[in-house]
Amino acid sequence: MEAPRFIAYESTSSLTSVTPAVQGTVLELGPGTGNQLSYFKSSAITRVYGVEYNLEFAEVLHAKVRENNLEDIYTPVFCDILDANALERHGIVENSIDCVTSFQVLCCTPDPTAVVAQIWKLLKPGGELVFWEHGASSDPFTLLAQKFWTLFWPTIKGGCYLDRNMRDILLKSADWEVVELRYEGEKASMMPRTLGRLRKVVAE
Rank of each mutant, 00 (worst) to 15 (best):
5 R>T: 08
5 R>G: 11
5 R>L: 12
9 Y>A: 05
9 Y>G: 01
11 S>N: 10
13 S>L: 06
17 S>D: 14
19 T>L: 11
19 T>P: 01
20 P>L: 08
22 V>T: 10
24 G>Y: 06
27 L>Q: 05
29 L>T: 07
29 L>I: 05
29 L>K: 02
29 L>Y: 08
30 G>M: 10
32 G>W: 02
33 T>G: 13
33 T>D: 15
33 T>P: 10
34 G>H: 04
37 L>Y: 03
39 Y>I: 00
40 F>A: 03
44 A>V: 00
47 R>I: 04
47 R>M: 14
48 V>A: 00
49 Y>E: 06
51 V>G: 11
52 E>Q: 13
55 L>W: 02
55 L>S: 11
58 A>E: 15
59 E>H: 13
60 V>H: 03
62 H>W: 05
64 K>E: 15
65 V>S: 11
66 R>C: 10
67 E>N: 07
67 E>S: 08
68 N>D: 04
71 E>A: 14
72 D>Y: 01
76 P>E: 10
76 P>A: 08
80 D>I: 05
81 I>M: 10
84 A>Q: 14
86 A>S: 14
88 E>V: 09
90 H>T: 08
93 V>L: 02
97 I>G: 08
99 C>W: 04
100 V>D: 04
101 T>L: 09
102 S>G: 13
104 Q>G: 12
107 C>V: 04
108 C>Q: 09
108 C>T: 13
109 T>P: 07
109 T>A: 14
111 D>T: 07
111 D>K: 05
113 T>W: 07
113 T>P: 00
116 V>F: 02
117 A>S: 14
118 Q>S: 15
120 W>C: 06
121 K>Y: 08
122 L>R: 14
124 K>W: 08
128 E>F: 01
130 V>E: 00
130 V>L: 02
131 F>K: 10
131 F>L: 10
131 F>P: 01
133 E>S: 05
136 A>Q: 09
137 S>D: 11
138 S>H: 14
139 D>A: 06
140 P>G: 07
141 F>V: 05
143 L>N: 09
143 L>A: 12
144 L>V: 04
145 A>F: 03
146 Q>Y: 10
149 W>H: 05
150 T>L: 00
151 L>K: 15
151 L>A: 13
152 F>T: 11
